[in-house]
Design a protein around this nucleic acid. Structure first.
Length: 907
DNA sequence: CTAGGGATATTA
DNA sequence: TAATATCCCTAG
């Protein structure tokens, strides 16, 4: 018994839940982030049992026995299993009583009273398993979330304990996730699956929570009562309980009541789902459901401080939004789609962008989008049926949220219609909670397969350095695990923190922005082969994120920041976007939808162009060839090309950029390694080393093949290559590169009257860019510095509209940026102009509407020529000042700073 | 709250 | 005593 409730008796103070106690008195943890659902962990102890979930367990041990044990009986744990040997302090009392015991010795300096140490309590396999599951659900590093998740029970463990356990038991994984750690390193490998992939992948937790019938009823009722004022409707407790956002309602409404939706003046989504509805989700159901139900509440947010902060903005009302990082905030990527299918008439996807994009075949796209998304999400998970997303609420654009009302003014056209893109979510993965299961399913079963769980528990011989492939990383410590998954988790997990973008964006932004959109934008529906995606999925996510992020930024930012794109104040455009109190609009204003930034962005950005595609493909190919690893992971070129490529490419590029440029300040190694390695594996080196070939990269994510030996990687692995990683966000880059000029803006404004024009121009520019990259266009990269990064970014951000400048601009850097900005502004203006409505609209409205407000501001700023904002982003980063790209490059070598790593990024 | 490093308790 | 597993502390 002992166990569970150790706290009670145990020591006076501690025990209980350790997590809280010990540490910082911190305020309620949950408050912000997590949501409700979980509350604090309940006492593990209590048998109330949190109801042990079923999750699959990964059985650590193999064998038989226990395996799953899901049951709870926490108690057992104590006893243990493990070796039987020790029990350290007796368990029994261990916990509790007498704490006295030995502990004291520690010297508890202070009083013997409280401060005694808590008795050592050995970790049981069950706990360990929970930890693993928790990491997969919440992400490595989200100890508290894991601890609080009723799904997992730990006996009196504190978050730190979880961390320590993770560190000690999965040193290999720890190193991957915590590249900065210099101590407590062990060579043991336990986190690798037979296939070399890591156990800890997943991370993302959110899942999609399909709307229930009740919700649909409430939605309908709300609509009847309040019209399309989703913000009002969402106040219904039922939605609150589900943590639905107003945008979620809109999205759902669109899917569930297409006719009404259309009647309301919104642009109807083609529901025609071309694609299949999607399979049932056998597996998912279980997981999802469970998750959904249970987890719904908690949103996990990771905090990846890193750069992201910059981005933060006020997206949502809540702090959560803050990071780009994850989830919910912004949208729901989290939720995975899941089940939605049932009711929704069509699970139609929602792509809003369709509107934006002018593309004729919206419907298709949508579908596509979904597919993509799912794929993306899936990424790691091969089998997975991709879920569709439609239902989920996707986006969540806060900004738009309230606002959506349909208005079709011509002016808004794009924007308006687009209003909110819904994007979706990416997270298919979520469904799979337990990595193990997943893996098992897909691949080798742990229990059965060659590798028994036991194997991994014990150090894996295979992994050992001796073996070339998989082991390689072990020895070196390179990233390792080959499987595509590995990457994935890297991203998600702690690493995320390191990676700004990837992590964060994917989730949050993507979702909000409408990753789906992105996809749609980029890809053609047909293009994708779902199957192919798998590996990349997550890449795509990133890509999407990136891309879209960029876009997002633009619009939003542009507005706020004005010409410069300064991310400065707001951080990401998101913030800016959201910034406008979402709430305002909705209720008061029913005005048509705000032009979602997304939309605009999309519009501007779309990669669709055939031209672009080509380049992308090329890129992809290379990348693929190089890195590919597992079949799954490997993408078909076409696929990538189709939708993901761009994104991926971008991502990597970005990532590269980031790393290169930014790194120094940030943590040293951090994900950088991973990336590096990947990159290298992928053959990407070029970037790092050169500047040039940015294009290549994409493949990387999956790069890890277990199989693929990556000689280089090993070599590389050492910090040397790319140092740090901490990337700054695009934003950061932007600022750097972008000149503050404003001049261009004005000019730009003139340039594109029409969004369409802009769009076109943008596209064109984008294409060019890609081409360059693909081509390895030397020019682009500009040997100079890391500028190349910019270019990519530029693509997104800038329009090429102005002209020729665009393409060159990319190469060039700053100068172009201005131009681009200008264009961006132009867009804004154009919108504004076009949409006279805006002007007509009450100021308040305008304010509400992110775009407008931002645009206006931007314009004004431009006029004024405030360049300052541009810098701001950097400012955000604390310690790190902006680093010049070159510097970064140079710096690579030293990564190390201790904690500093985060500094820069972090708060 | 978490990362990262240190200290101490256990084991081998 | 070396190696390891937990516990602890502290910076951010």
């Amino acid at each position: 018994m002992a166990a569970n409730i150790p706290s009670t008796s145990s020591q006076p103070y501690t025990t209980t839940f350790s997590f809280t106690a010990p540490f910082p008195p911190s305020p309620a943890p949950s408050a912000q982030a997590q949501s409700l659902a979980k509350q604090r962990r309940v006492s593990l102890a209590l048998p109330s049992d949190s109801s042990p979930r079923i999750f699959p367990a990964w059985s650590f041990r193999d064998d038989t026995g226990l395996g799953v044990h899901s049951a709870d009986s926490p108690q057992d744990d104590d006893v243990e299993k493990k070796g039987g040997k020790m029990r350290k302090i007796d368990d029994a009392d261990g916990d509790v009583h007498s704490c006295a015991q030995p502990l004291l010795q520690g010297g508890a300096p202070t009083n013997p009273d409280k401060p005694e140490k808590k008795p050592r309590k050995k970790w049981t396999m069950e706990e360990t398993q929970m930890l693993v599951s928790g990491c997969n659900k919440w992400g490595v590093g989200n100890w508290k979330s894991i601890l609080n998740d009723p799904e997992f029970k730990f006996d009196g463990r504190s978050p730190v304990d979880l961390k320590d356990r993770f560190r000690t038991y999965y040193p290999d994984a720890y190193r991957q996730h915590y590249p900065n750690a210099k101590t407590h390193l062990s060579s043991k490998v336990r986190s690798a699956l037979p296939d070399g992939s890591s156990i800890f992948e997943k991370t993302r937790s959110k899942k999609r929570r399909p709307f229930t019938e009740e919700e649909d009823r409430a939605l309908k009722a709300g609509y009847d009562k309040h019209g399309t004022v989703w913000a009002t409707i969402v106040k219904d407790p039922i939605f609150q309980a589900q943590n639905r956002r107003s945008t979620d309602l809109r999205d759902r409404f669109r899917n569930a009541f297409p006719d009404l939706y259309q009647a309301a003046g919104y642009k109807p989504r083609n529901t025609t789902k071309k694609k299949r509805d999607i399979p049932s989700h056998p597996m998912r159901a279980a997981t999802d459901d469970s998750l959904a139900s249970s987890s719904a509440g908690p949103v996990r947010r990771k905090r990846r401080h890193t750069d992201q902060e910059l981005f933060r903005g006020g997206t949502k009302s809540v702090p959560e939004s803050a990071n780009v990082s994850e989830d919910e905030d912004s949208s729901d990527e989290e939720d995975s789609a899941a089940p939605f299918v049932k009711d929704a008439p069509a699970a139609t996807p929602q792509s809003t962008h369709d509107d934006m994009i002018m593309s004729p075949d919206e419907g298709t796209k949508e579908i596509e989008m979904q597919t993509l998304d799912s794929l993306n999400d899936t990424l790691s998970i091969p089998d997975f049926p991709s879920s569709s997303l439609s239902e989920m609420t996707d986006s969540s654009q806060n900004w738009s949220s309230g606002i959506d009302t349909p208005i079709h003014s011509s002016a808004w056209s794009t924007a308006t219609n687009a209003a909110s893109p819904t994007s979706s979510h990416l997270s298919v993965t979520d469904y799979f909670n337990s990595p193990f299961q997943r893996r098992n399913e897909s691949g080798p079963m742990i229990g059965k397969s060659a590798w028994g769980p036991q194997d991994w528990l014990s150090a894996n011989p295979r992994l050992e350095p001796s073996s070339s492939s998989s082991s390689s990383y072990i020895g070196n410590f390179s990233p390792a695990p080959s499987s595509p998954f590995s990457f994935a988790h890297l991203n998600h997990g702690v690493l995320d923190r390191y990676d700004l973008f990837p992590t964060s964006f994917p989730h949050d932004f993507a979702s909000e922005v409408g990753v789906g959109d992105t996809h749609s934008t980029f890809s053609d529906p047909e293009m994708f082969a779902p199957s192919s995606f798998r590996g990349f999925t997550h890449h795509s996510n990133y890509a999407g994120d990136l891309i879209f992020g960029a876009r997002t930024h633009q619009p939003q930012q542009s507005a706020d920041y004005g010409p410069g794109f300064g991310f400065g104040s707001a951080g990401l455009g998101l913030s800016g976007i959201q910034a406008p109190p979402s709430g305002n609009l909705h209720s008061a204003v029913r005005t048509p939808a705000l032009p979602g930034i997304d939309e605009i962005e999309l519009t501007s950005i779309t990669l669709d162009d055939p031209d672009v595609a080509v380049p992308m493909e090329e890129t992809v190919d290379t990348a693929v060839a190089k890195d590919t690893t597992s079949p799954d992971s490997s993408l078909s070129l076409s696929d990538l090309t189709t939708f993901s490529l761009p994104p991926q490419t971008l991502e990597e590029i970005i990532g590269l950029t980031q790393e290169i440029h930014v790194t120094p300040p940030g943590t040293p190694q951090t994900h950088g390694h991973d990336r590096m390695t990947r990159m290298q594996q992928a053959g990407v080196h070029t970037l790092s080393s050169h500047n040039r070939s940015i294009s290549v990269p994409p493949s990387e994510h999956r790069a890890y093949d277990p199989h693929a030996p990556v000689p280089q990687s090993q070599q590389i692995r050492p910090k040397s290559l790319v140092p740090p990683t901490r990337s700054m966000s695009l934003m950061d880059y932007m600022p750097l590169h972008t000149p503050t000029d404003q001049q261009g803006h004005a000019n730009a404004a003139g340039t594109s009257p029409d969004t369409g024009g802009v769009f076109t121009s943008l596209t064109g520019s984008a294409n060019e860019l890609w081409k360059h990259f693909n081509g390895g266009a030397p020019s682009i990269p500009g040997a100079d510095n890391g500028n190349y990064d910019l270019p990519f970014l530029d693509l997104h951000y800038y329009n090429g509209a102005q002209g020729g400048a665009a393409s060159p601009g990319l190469a060039t850097e700053h100068g172009n940026a201005d131009a681009n900005q200008a264009q961006a502004l132009d867009l804004a203006q154009s919108f504004a102009l076009q949409s006279k409505t805006l002007s007509q609209l009450p100021p308040t409205l305008a304010q509400h509407i992110p775009m407008f407000a931002s645009w206006q501001n931007a314009l004004s700023e431009v006029a004024q020529g405030s360049s300052s904002r541009m810098m701001s982003p950097h400012a955000h980063q604390r310690g790190q000042s902006v680093v010049s790209p070159q510097d970064l490059l140079l710096t690579k070598g030293d990564n190390k700073r201790k904690r500093s790593s985060w500094d820069g990024a972090a708060l």
